[in-house]
């Protein structure tokens, strides 16, 4: 049995996703072996992230300043709104470059097995944004999984009556991929999603 401060730390670390009790204990002992300064920096970072990070009142992304940098940027095309599931997806699209519109973060997708329904997502905020006439097109960029597709279909139905064009990100054969080695499902999707040239 651990001394109570260690047991408390293990218990708290084990609450993190993907961390079991053994990994939590390993992390706890790593923290114990680290310098007092490193441990204090880690603790302060955890406190700071909870204190300073909030939701952007426009796009619902995580931000230190409200509105976030992307929503404040006047060079961005406000008529384009890329709807993503998680804040990490904004980072991925920004890293790819090329997209100059704005974002909306849902913080999840509809998921029956996780009990995530429409009310658990940032859908009302999206509809409010789209209802004021500034957004002309919403690019539904949820993952091409069953849950991601269903979420996109659900949003498209809500957006159309608002006069907002709903488009879906393309899926299919990856760049540099060989058709011969593509799986049946991906290839079928690529054929379905073909475009005129």
């Amino acid at each position: 049995m651990y001394a109570s401060p260690i047991a408390r730390l293990v218990q708290q670390l084990a609450k993190l996703p993907g961390i079991g009790e053994k990994t939590a204990a390993r992390l706890a002992f790593h923290i114990l072996r680290a310098s007092a300064e490193d441990a204090a920096v880690l603790a302060a970072a955890i406190v700071e992230v909870r204190q300073k990070i909030r939701f952007c009142s426009i796009c619902c992304d995580l931000t230190e300043a409200d509105p976030c940098a992307i929503c404040r940027d006047q060079r961005r095309d406000g008529s384009l709104c890329c709807v993503v599931a998680q804040p990490q997806d904004v980072v991925a699209i920004e890293r790819a470059g090329g997209y100059r519109g704005r974002y909306h973060v849902l913080h999840g997708v509809l998921s029956p097995l996780d009990g995530v329904g429409p009310d658990d997502l940032r859908v009302p905020e999206l509809l409010r944004r789209c209802g004021d006439g500034t957004v002309a097109e919403a690019i539904l960029a949820t993952s091409p999984s069953v849950e991601g597709e269903a979420t996109a279909v659900y949003l498209a139905k809500l957006l159309r009556p608002l006069g907002v064009r709903a488009s879906r990100i393309a899926t299919g054969v990856p760049m540099g991929g060989e058709l011969e080695y593509a799986d049946q499902v991906t290839l079928a999707r690529a054929i379905d999603g073909r475009r005129e040239m």
Binding site: G148, A150, A152, V153, Y154, D183, Q184, V185, A188, R189
Partner: peptide
């Protein structure tokens, strides 16, 4: 895991997805 046939329409509406998940 080699997908032999995707149920591509399961994501086409929430009702289908909900019944599949159930």
């Amino acid at each position: 895991f080699d997908a032999t046939g995707g149920h591509s329409a399961l994501g086409a509406d929430i009702g289908r997805m909900a019944h599949a998940a159930y």
